[in-house]
Every structure is written in C-alpha cells, then in structure tokens.
Nucleic acid binder design. Structure first.
Lengths: 135, 135
DNA sequence: CTGAATCCGGTCCGATACTG
DNA sequence: CAGTATCGGACCGGATTCAG
C-alpha cells in the first residue's frame, strides 16, 4: 500500500497505462472531465452536498449564476446521473434537487482539489506577479 | 482522524465555512479551478508528470492539441508556477518544460479525479442513455 | 415558482501562414 | 525547433422576455 507522495507516481503509472486509449478517438475520461470542468458544475455539486435544494434556493445561494445556466447545468448533472430531480405537485409548483449516490461520490475528489487550491493560492498568485513583472 | 466516506462530510464542512468568501467578489478558489478546468491544462500536467519534455515532443504525445493552444497553455501553466521553462542555447534551439514542485503536487488531486472518472464512466453513460430515451 | 426561448457579445480554439 | 500573427467559426454564457 502506497502513501503520501508516492501516490503521485502511482497515478502517473496509471495515467501512462491508459494513455494509449485516450489517443484513439474520443477519450471517455476527457468526456467526463470536460463536463466537470465547466464553469458551474462543481459549484452546484458542492452546494447540493449539504442537502437537497429548491430551484430558487440554489439561485440565492449561488447568486452570480444566471437562471439559464442554473437550469442548463442542473439538466446536465441530472443527465449524467449526478443529481436527482423531484417535482412536487403543489401550487405553485416546487422542484427539489438532490445529489445521487454517484454525485455524492464526487465530493471526495472535488474536496481534494479544492483543498489543494486553497493551500496553494498564495504560491500561484506570487508566481503570477513574478511572471508578469518579468515580462 | 477521519477516513473513507466520512471524508466527504469533512469537505462539505470546509466548503461551507469558506462559502461566505466565495460570494464576495472574485473567489480565489474559482479563479484557480477555472484554469484547471480548461481543455488542455490537466492533460499537459499529466503528460509532464512522467518527466521533462521538449516542445515538439509534447506536441507528438498530445496529437490533437493545436500548436497555438500548446504554446498558450504552457505559458499559462508557467505563469501560475506549475511548469518551468528552460531554454538551451543550441542550434537549432531547444526548450524544455518540466513540472515544478507546485505542479507536481497537483498530480495527486488530479489522479483522484481521473480515477473517479474511470471508475464511473459506465454509470454515467448508462445514466445518459436512460435520460435521453426518457425524453 | 420553475422554467423555456431568444438575442447577442465575448471568448475559446483550430487552421493556416510566417519568423528566427 | 520553437514559436508568433491573423483569420474565422463555434460555443459559452449573460440579459431579457415570455409561459405554465
């Protein structure tokens, strides 16, 4: 069992093993990660991680997303099986979104990435100013 | 110390603690993760993970990237301090790119995400066909 | 309340040609 | 070999308006 820094070389090995696959036609990994990498998916998944939300509730908690993108992103997440959509036949109608088990399983890798970002923001911004003034 | 599935709730807690920050103006986490989410960054980082590469060497290993995007993405990665660029004054000139320590530290969270994608591609494609035929 | 539909500007990104 | 410059299409995504 590997631990700590050695995990990196493990991931590199796995990556290299699968590299041949990615060159042939459409790489499924890229297909999946492109969706994840869009502007709002991760944000919505992390917001839904605390529990189910209604449409406008999500809109309030993520204020700078447009209604269009909220609808569209939720639809994509639902299509990929990460989010479940439940309609309550009330008046006025209400719709609840919640993470599926699959969606919930994304929180760990997302969390790792977010943690990495938080830890390294100072280094990155420092590198940027260095680079920009060097030019 | 938490382990396994409980890590998820830990990440959710941390996310909620930092949520107030992200609403105010430009969220640094989003700033960083947007770069990660672009089309080529992750691919190049994972390719450079096996060792330093020359420009055209990278071009051959990632055949479907255009020269323009290769140049641009490498520049951005260099600017963020993830990649180091070393020019050898030979004839013809050669330039070598390698991951910095910071760039190397990205491999673990990237690896986690790629592993997640690989494991769950069947579920996602199944969900997609279900969703599409339901419509 | 929960969307759908439309318009439209900005950006991404590929193709091509050219340079030192 | 390692880029730069320019053009042009595609697409993302915001603002607004309309509908059930």
């Amino acid at each position: 069992m590997r631990r700590g820094e050695d995990m990196a070389s493990l991931y590199v090995e796995r990556w290299n093993e699968g590299a041949a696959l990615s060159t042939a036609g459409t790489c499924p990994v890229r297909n999946v990660l492109d969706k994840i990498g869009d502007k709002w998916s991760m944000l919505l998944v992390m917001t839904l991680a605390s529990g189910p939300r209604r449409f406008n509730q999500l809109h309030r908690e993520v204020p700078d997303i447009s209604q269009k993108m909220l609808t569209q992103t939720l639809r994509d997440l639902q299509r990929d099986g990460l989010v479940a959509r439940q309609v309550f036949d009330t008046k006025p109608p209400s719709v609840e979104y919640r993470l599926t088990a699959l969606g919930y399983s994304l929180i760990v890798p997302f969390g790792q990435l977010i943690e990495w970002a938080n830890e390294n923001i100072p280094r990155i911004t420092a590198a940027r100013t260095d680079f920009d003034q060097a030019v």
